[in-house]
Write a protein that binds this DNA or RNA. Structure first.
Length: 309
DNA sequence: AACGCAGGCAACCGCTATCCT
DNA sequence: TAGGATAGCGGTTGCCTGCGT
């Protein structure tokens, strides 16, 4: 890809691999093999000193990235499946540009891969369907007979343009749900919200980790005021965020409103015409459920969640 | 066949969080 | 507690490739 001699960034700032003799650019098969063999032998970690120990003329960051994104045995290569695509969309609506969190829920996919896929495929797809990819809300299209892509963003979330930070990058959809007592989306995005609810609901029926009623409601009602995202998030610790997730999970519009059992459609009509029920949703729910279960048991997941708090 | 263009994606960047001494 | 080291994250860059002309 990149020309090693050209250097990566176009900025004048000092790159991390500015040392003379440190190689940059695309990795060669030989380098891959050296790195793979070394990590299989010695294990991950100590990236800073790894290149020297392994005999690579790379910086530690580069080695880590290469391993995480390509050389790890668990990394899945190949096209993103429609099921995965739908899952990415729904997770993005919940989590925003938290690529690592999204990737953590899609086995075999890396944050970089998902990020790239989002930027090159999904965001454009959403735009073409009149949905703002930043907040998953309908775009207000300027009435235009030739369907030119002139659009007005209706909900310009701060996360879209501001410097990302752990405390300010929740998706607007998520924030919206945090502020309301119901997960139900009341605008033209109803269908999308309902579809998401199905998944969330499915999770709620089986996940039993933080499922106390008290904890469940705390995240939503304990201090968050709609429009005051920062305050809420700043006060949000692991428990409250977990509780918030629980509240999402347990807020069950279909139980409350069984007559509204909707006709579900994929968020994006990527493949076949919309079925009344999508296997992807079941698969996704199962996947998310399993990760939530995992989060109950593993500190690493807590650490991940903690990034949001 | 040659050229130009746009899209895809691997890699790099700066920044922040966490760990360690 | 402070400060350095390390790990990890999300945004951005720019080369490569495929396609259209």
């Amino acid at each position: 890809m990149r020309n090693p001699s050209s250097g990566g960034g176009s900025t004048s700032k000092t790159p991390c691999c500015s040392k003379v003799g440190i190689k940059r650019g695309p990795w060669t098969p030989e380098e891959d093999e050296i790195l793979s063999n070394y990590i299989k032998r010695e294990g991950e970690g100590r990236w800073r000193t790894l290149p020297k120990r392994a005999g690579l003329l790379r910086c530690g960051k580069s080695c880590r990235l290469r391993w995480m994104n390509y050389l790890r045995p668990s990394v899945k290569r190949g096209r993103i499946a429609p099921d995965e695509e739908d899952l990415i969309l729904r997770l993005h609506r919940l989590l925003g540009n938290r690529w690592s969190l999204i990737a953590g829920r899609i086995p075999g996919r890396t944050d970089n891969e998902i990020k790239n896929y989002w930027n090159t495929h999904l965001s454009k797809k959403l735009i073409s369907q009149g949905i703002d990819p930043r907040n998953h809300k309908p775009l207000v299209v300027n009435p235009n007979p030739n369907n030119s892509p002139e659009v007005i963003i209706t909900h310009d979330h701060a996360a879209s343009n501001s410097k990302p930070g752990p405390k300010s990058n929740l998706s607007p959809g998520l924030v919206e749900e945090m502020g309301g007592s119901s997960i139900q989306i009341s605008d033209a995005n109803d269908q999308l919200g309902q579809y998401q609810n199905l998944v969330v609901n499915d999770i709620s029926n089986t996940q039993n980790c933080h499922n106390s009623d008290g904890a469940m409601t705390m995240g939503l009602q304990g201090g968050y005021v709609q429009g005051n995202e920062e305050n809420y998030i700043e006060n949000c610790n692991e428990d409250t965020f977990s509780s918030f997730l629980d509240s999402l999970i347990n807020d069950n519009m279909f139980v409350n409103q069984p007559q509204q059992q909707p006709t579900f459609k994929p968020l994006i009509s990527s493949s076949s015409p919309a079925p009344t029920f999508n296997h992807a949703a079941i698969w996704e729910a199962e996947l998310i459920r399993s990760t939530i279960h995992t989060s109950c048991d593993e500190q690493s997941e807590l650490n991940n969640i903690n990034h949001l708090a």
